[in-house]
């Protein structure tokens, strides 16, 4: 399978890049809200970049799978990462704070949006945050937090736990952090 390997945006050279900074696009969420965003920030999403390139945008880009609240968050992220002069260190700090306050439901909204819009950096950050929340937690905690319903009988579950007994060593008490 050929892997898509586009240049990360923002590395483009000159006049075109300058134009992107000044040109604005309008993104329309599933619930009809419209957001203005500079093209240079918007195209950090590979999906949006493709739409712009294919010129199927016509000014307003509809994003039927992203609701307004989530889109607002995503745009905050994109703007920060397209900001001139923001150092890598600054961006890293921003990323950390950006995801650390999010509730699990919001993390899921954002991870879905980032996946759909193909925003690699954001996707990476949110996935890591979700994994961090799951680390060292008991099966019961994960089921409760993620509303996963078990369809195993207690006997089946016991059998599987025995099979992987080593994976059950040293599980913390389920303090949510």
């Amino acid at each position: 399978m050929a892997r898509k390997n586009r240049n990360p945006v923002g590395k483009n050279v000159d006049p075109e890049a300058q134009k992107k900074k000044t040109r604005t696009l309008t993104l329309k969420s599933s619930d009809g809200q419209e957001f203005s965003i500079s093209e240079s920030a918007a195209v950090l999403s590979i999906a949006i970049e493709n739409m712009v390139e294919d010129d199927c945008a016509g000014g307003v880009i509809p994003l039927p799978l992203v609701d307004g609240g989530t889109l607002a968050r995503v745009i905050t992220y994109l703007n920060k990462h397209a900001e001139d002069g923001a150092s890598d260190e600054e961006k890293r700090k921003f990323d950390e704070e950006f995801v650390s306050g999010m509730e699990m439901g919001v993390l899921f909204d954002v991870v879905l949006a980032a996946n759909y819009l193909d925003i690699r950096g954001l996707l990476r950050e949110v996935r890591r945050r979700i994994a961090d929340r799951m680390k060292n937690k008991s099966v019961e905690w994960v089921r409760k937090t993620f509303h996963i319903e078990s369809d195993f009988t207690p006997e089946e579950e016991e059998q599987m736990k025995k099979e992987f007994a080593w994976a059950w060593e040293g599980v913390d008490s389920d303090v949510d952090d």
């Binding site: 991870v111 799951m134 089921r143 996963i148 319903e149 078990s150 599987m160 994976a167 059950w168």
Partner: peptide
């Protein structure tokens, strides 16, 4: 996305997810 979340977990945490549901 699920694959990547599991990849970010220590192996034993990932293995424990096998009993969450079928």
């Amino acid at each position: 996305v699920v694959d990547h979340i599991l990849t970010n977990l220590p192996l034993r945490d990932a293995v424990r997810t096998s009993v969450l549901s079928s």
